[in-house]
Nucleic acid binder design. Structure first.
Lengths: 226, 226
DNA sequence: TCAAAAGTGTTAGGCTTACACCCATGC
DNA sequence: GCATGGGTGTAAGCCTAACACTTTTGA
């Protein structure tokens, strides 16, 4: 058996990785978490967090583990996006990548360097640097899927703290959809879905009328509406 | 290097396969193409067509190739469904499977045994035999996705010949959705989408009034409506 | 002439959209 | 008292859903 290559098969096997597109809303724009590569190929370039699948975990567990290792973020709901498989998408060897996307609130999160001291940072999706591999394509697909799922699911709430105001929620929708929404119609619509309850508390920020705060009635599940 | 195991890596690599859920409508029911396994594991059991990824093809090409080899079916539009990755889903070794689904008309197709003489056959989705691996789960996911996409895409037309009547189209919808639809509303709705044109010909079958036949205006693309 | 499927409009109700002003607070 | 964002209702039009009879053909 070749030295340092103890894993041998009768047929060639590709490597399998996960890559994660983690969105947040920060500074009034939709942003994506990137890490700076410390090793070739694409050394110094920015890339999506992710890494190789272990033999004792499934893809979702792998994505969660890599996110934790590289950014310190734990326990997010991850949704499988697409599996990329162009034969030349990684110059080192054949690599299949199952991609996931997730959402988180930015203000409770300080992306930090992982154990190997890579840098992690948020970038606005409309001003991303050049990305390693086919990661630009992955981000674009994730952005489309996110916008498409907004009104058919409860994913938007993952971008907000446990309690929030309707204006905050509307700002999330407007940022993701990149369009202004009518305040009265937005409130009517979101309340008609019966997924929110008033907390009874008020948000008192700034010199204006306090806003009612709400929470999701069933925060555990990401529901598909209709 | 171990005899008969010439492909060696520094880290363990999973095998990667594709599996395809191919739907048709036959005998007024939604049916799925299965092949009978000739080798262990799950020998003699029915399973989805599929097989191992080659190093010089992407997953979609693999799915198309396997479909051709195992069933003689070529050139279908395949849509990626989900990638399954439970560590124990294949008893032989660690296998990741990217799954695809597709639709075809049944009457132009005679699923035939591939080169290794396996049997291929259609089964109604409501009366499937026990399936090998996690293939029952894959079929169920494909069924859900198919129903969800009916009204947002043009996939339904793949189940029909190039020209067809509105009654035939309605029967496809009713079979997939498993519910009766109102004839006038169905026709109004489908014609309002402006994706059909009259051929000018009529279908003269049986002792009743002939039906106008239609074709899809742009048959090349699977469109997402809206 | 009968059986069988093709073809065709209208109405009511619900949903969506557009739109403007008063309220409560901090400074 | 003024600036700031919070909060509220109505009307028009559009879309959806329910519903039944006439037409054309082959046997």
């Amino acid at each position: 058996m070749p030295v340092n290559q103890p894993y041998c098969y009768t047929h060639p096997h590709p490597a399998v990785t996960t890559d994660i597109v983690l969105f947040t809303i920060r500074e009034e724009s939709l942003q994506v978490l990137l890490i700076q590569r410390t090793n070739p190929p694409f050394r110094q370039m920015w890339a999506l967090p992710g890494g190789f699948l272990n033999m004792d975990e499934n893809l979702e567990q792998c994505a969660n583990r890599e996110l934790l290792e590289e950014t310190g973020i734990d326990g997010l709901y991850l949704e499988q996006l697409y599996t990329f498989s162009a034969p030349d998408r990684d110059p080192r060897e054949r690599v299949i990548s199952a991609t996931y996307f997730a959402l988180t609130q930015s203000d409770t999160l300080h992306p930090k360097a992982g154990s190997d001291a890579q840098e992690a940072a948020w970038f606005p999706i409309s001003g991303l640097p050049d990305l390693a591999f086919d990661h630009a394509e992955i981000v674009e697909l994730a952005r489309q899927r996110l916008a498409a799922k907004l009104n058919y699911s409860t994913i938007a709430f993952q971008l907000l703290p446990e309690t929030f105001t309707l204006s905050q929620l509307q700002a999330v929708y407007e940022t993701i959809l990149d369009e202004k929404l009518d305040k009265r119609n937005f409130r009517k619509g979101v309340l008609a879905r019966n997924i929110l309850m008033e907390t009874g508390d008020y948000s008192r920020t700034g010199n204006h009328r306090p806003a009612k705060t709400y929470r999701v009635i069933n925060p555990t599940r990401v529901e598909i509406i209709k």
